[in-house]
Write a protein that binds this DNA or RNA. Structure first.
Lengths: 216, 216, 216, 216
DNA sequence: GACTAAACGAGACGGTACGTCACGTCTTAGC
DNA sequence: GCTAAGACGTGACGTACCGTCTCGTTTAGTC
């Protein structure tokens, strides 16, 4: 069984010989990391249906009770794993120009959603959110709200710079920029190339009568 | 699993006196309809997790084996139920004007997705499609491809009329119109009012330098 | 379910190769024989649990309904198959001497029970009789009673000859002769050699103060 | 499946401090007893076909999985129930005389087989043994072998006493004594009165030229 | 020669039970 | 006090047969 080795690796990150297996010193970091890593791995390897509490417990060398003590469902585990991996990855750069900022950001968002491993987890979580309103609420407050704030950043900076009018409907504009990406990823499964994301930016510029300073 | 629907259509379209009576020999239309009706009802009433093969069988007064004989999973049942309810409901009207057509169509699409019962089933199916690529493929070929064709209709008519240039990137334009709706429905769960759908149409018109003839 | 056999016999007397598949005048001999043959074969090949109505129907190329029309259960089919094969096989010879008669008969009975294919079917039927009193009654009246009469024949002939007293308790004596055979076959599964059956005869002779005329 | 019973016994007899290590907290004695009691009850009440895993589980308030964890089939459960009830009940008394010992023992064996509840279970198990060689082997090693040893006891004691010659063929003699009982119980279903069992003893005495000291 | 009636093959149907899987709760022993 | 281990009740899974019920065909015999 792999867990022995995995556990060893996990504990080696804790500097000195501080291994606690079951003890009176609070939660086992080792167990927590093993669970998250295994959950991620199972999702990528066997798909959503292949992620089970029993499967995670067995492969992580962890007791089921330990998982239930700290997470309330397998989707909660996956969300934790996702948050650990994904947070702060998707912040738009500041090139000082709305066109450049958006172009870069949408490309990276597209890649994240359609190509990356965390993107696969994201899709699984969004799927779960369709089935479970409580989970949906949780997912929004723990990830999506923050993501929406990051989505809006380039526009806010452009308003600050005076490139865009201050009375812009931020929510609607953001939805028009990122909505088509999510639509392709979640619904049509068509590939998203640079021409598609760049096209979104161009459309945005055109309807606000702006022009791109540079072209890629 | 197309045969299920085909058989149903075949037998239901058999307009005149040809219909066989108790419908023994061959599939039981009664059982088929009961299953679809019950599946739909369970989804709306108890959510996706509340839809089980056993539950459908019990409530529909049907043997489990009968369900498995004609559908390969509960999502396959739900898809059939969805197709029976939803097909052809979402065809854009033809008012002779792109602005009017789009305004009406997006409002109805928004209502369908966020308010209607079939819309709830649609969300469940899209969720399942995230988890199961085979199902996703099936769903696309049996519903989404047709829906995309319907989405494009208003634009195609406008091109025919000369309101829009013939070299328009249909796919990209459609995605920008409907993508934000799906995004709100599937991801952010924000309410979609007329101001939002109308705003999408206005943005479309602005970036193509058109003006709305009328306002609703 | 006696009619099954009777009908079969009646129709089998109809001379030449008059095969009818489905017709106005009674049952298909072809189907009847196929069912019995297949039932026997399945029992020998896959054991009792491997004999199913569906299995018989499929392998015999017969509709389930046809089986149910003529037999009331799979054990009823097996009983018919058994009766067809086994009846009249086990009649004691008449060598004119009780010792010789018994010796030969018990050997053949032992072989029948423990070695022959019909013996295997017999064991399955006796087993079923433990579980189902109605079947047990049927089996007794259709086979066991006759068999008991055949068991008693050598003793009756000996009484007629004057070798044994006329007030002999036939039932008890027969049970002591054949009971140990059935016991070994059904309960202990120990092999039954000639020394065992001959020993039973010797014990019989000894307690009735007879001596064997010949020895084999 | 011997471990089931053994484990249970081990845990119930594990009085002092030496607790078992293999099972963290081990099997539920309560569940085990409920299953055995219910299985017995169902057999007596509804016959063999009325004993189902689902029925046992439901009536015993136990999960099906719990039954499958410890027993491999319903007949395995019944065997366990039978062994719990029946073992050691059928030991011949020692009156110091072969005639008395046998007379008493055969009467009690007859009663056990034909009248008692465990006797009904025994018949069901013997029936199953006809259908399933693996089960048959198991049943023999867990019950029948011991029973055969008990059958032989009166004869062995008589040999020790000098009432019978030491070169007696124990197996054959035992089969002649008990075989007719099993035959009547399993095959002919004729009632077994004292006159029948006593007759078996008398025949035994006669062929060994012994006389009964007392008569009942 | 058309018609009728019995038996046929086929196979869908409502069911029961099977044996398996994962759930979430729980108890116990070790560190 | 947290851990690994794992038994437990619950409930759904997908499968195998059960016995019943039309279907549409085949085939004698009757009119």
């Amino acid at each position: 069984m792999a867990p022995a080795t995995n556990a060893a690796e996990a504990s080696s990150t804790g500097g000195s010989g501080r291994r606690h297996h079951g003890n009176r010193h609070g939660r086992s970091e080792q167990a927590r990391l093993a669970v998250l890593r295994v959950a991620d791995g199972l999702l990528v390897e066997k798909g959503f249906a292949g992620v089970t509490m029993e499967g995670i417990a067995a492969r992580a060398g962890v007791a089921k009770q330990t998982i239930y003590r700290w997470w309330k469902s397998k989707t909660d585990v996956l969300m934790d794993a996702f948050l650990q991996d994904a947070t702060e990855d998707l912040t738009a750069p500041d090139f000082g120009d709305i066109a450049l900022d958006l172009r870069d950001y949408l490309r990276r968002l597209a890649w994240f959603l359609s190509e990356s491993d965390p993107g696969a987890v994201f899709k699984a979580l969004i799927a779960q959110a369709q089935h479970d309103p409580v989970f949906a609420q949780d997912f929004r407050s723990r990830y999506l709200d923050g993501q929406r704030r990051r989505d809006r950043l380039p526009l806010e900076r452009a308003v600050d710079r005076g490139q865009l009018p201050p009375d812009l409907d931020m929510a609607a504009e953001t939805d028009q920029l990122v909505g088509p990406l999510y639509y392709r990823v979640l619904v049509t499964d068509e590939p998203i190339g640079h021409e598609f994301t760049d096209g979104l930016v161009d459309a945005f510029l055109r309807r606000h009568k702006l022009t791109a300073r540079t072209k890629s």
